[in-house]
Amino acid sequence: METPAIRVVSLHKTYQNDIHAVKGLSFTVAAGSCFALLGPNGAGKTTTMKILYGKARPDPQGETVIEVLGFDPRRDELDIKVQTGVVPQDNALDEELDVMRNLLVYARLNGIRGRRAVERIDELLAFMELIDKRNASVRELSGGMKRRLAIARALLNNPRLLILDEPTTGLDPQVRHVIWDKLRSLMRSGVTVLVSTHYMDEAYQLANRILIMDHGEAVLEGHPASLMETHMERHVLEVTNAARASRVDAALGDGNGDDIRVERSAERALYYGNALAPLEDAARRLDFGEYVLRPANLEDLFLKTTGRQLNELQ
C-alpha cells in the first residue's frame, strides 16, 4: 500500500491561555485524495493544519506521531514546506506589493528565481484566471481575487500536498464553483488536498473522506455518502412554524411504524425519518409555506453531531 500523505496519531495542542484546541486527534490522509476537516469555529481545524506545516507546535507528548509526506514537521519543517502549498484562512498576502511581486517574492522564498519564476507565475495567473490583474495592487483586489491569488501563491512550488484553510468562506457562488473546479483539476493531476470548511456542500463537492471535529476531537469520519447512509435519516420534514408542530405530532403519533427523530427549537421543529410516506402524510395537515419536506443533507448530519448550541468561539 502506498504511504499516506499525512498520518497523525494522538495529536494534542494546548495554547498558552490554557485553551485545549486539539485533544488526541488521529487521522490519515491517503496520497492523492481529498480530505476535509469539518467543524464549527473553534473545533481545532486551523490549529491542526498549522501543526502540519510547522506554523504551530503540538504539545510534547511521547505517543504523538505526525508524518507529512514522510517528514515530521517538528524536525523537518522545510522538507515539508518545499513540497506543500499553504492557503491560510486570512490569505496573508503582502499588501505592500502588487500581484506579480507578491508571487515573485514567494517564489524566491521557495527557491524559484529568475525566468523560471516569471514563467511559472504567468502559468498560474492564467490557471487562476487572474492574468489581467498581473500588475494590480493587492489592496484593490476583490475578496474572490485575493483568494485565487493566495491559491496561485500556494501552487508556485508545484506542491504534492495542498493545505487550504476554509478556501471559500465569504465568497460568492460563482467564485466558489471556480475554486472547486480548480481544486478538482489539481486533484486529478495527483495533488493531495487537505481542506477545512464549515460548509457541508463544500465537503460534499470535494472530499473523498471527511472528518467531523468538535471541541478538538474527532466526532465522525468517513466517506460523505456512507456517513449519511449510516448516521442520518434519509428525509426531513422541517416545520417552520413551531406553533403548528402539534398537527404533525398528532399525525406521526398514530403508529405508522417508522422511527421518527424530532429536533425542536422555539421557532422550528424538524422530523427526521427514513420513509418518505409518513412525512408526506403529516405535511398534508399543514398549509403551504409552513413546512419544507426535503432530503436530509450533510448539514443536518453536521448539526446532529456537533449540536445546535453555539460554543464560546462562535
Binding site: 513540497q83 506589493l97 522564498l109 502559468e123 490557471f127
Partner: peptide
Amino acid sequence: MSSSNTGVQGLALRLEAVWYRHMRVYTRH
C-alpha cells in the same frame, strides 16, 4: 502543470529571499 519540485535551498539563499522582499517593498517608492 509543468516544472518539478525544487529541493530546500541553502541558508544564504533563504536569507537573500527574505532580504529581497524588503528590498522590493522599499524600492517601490
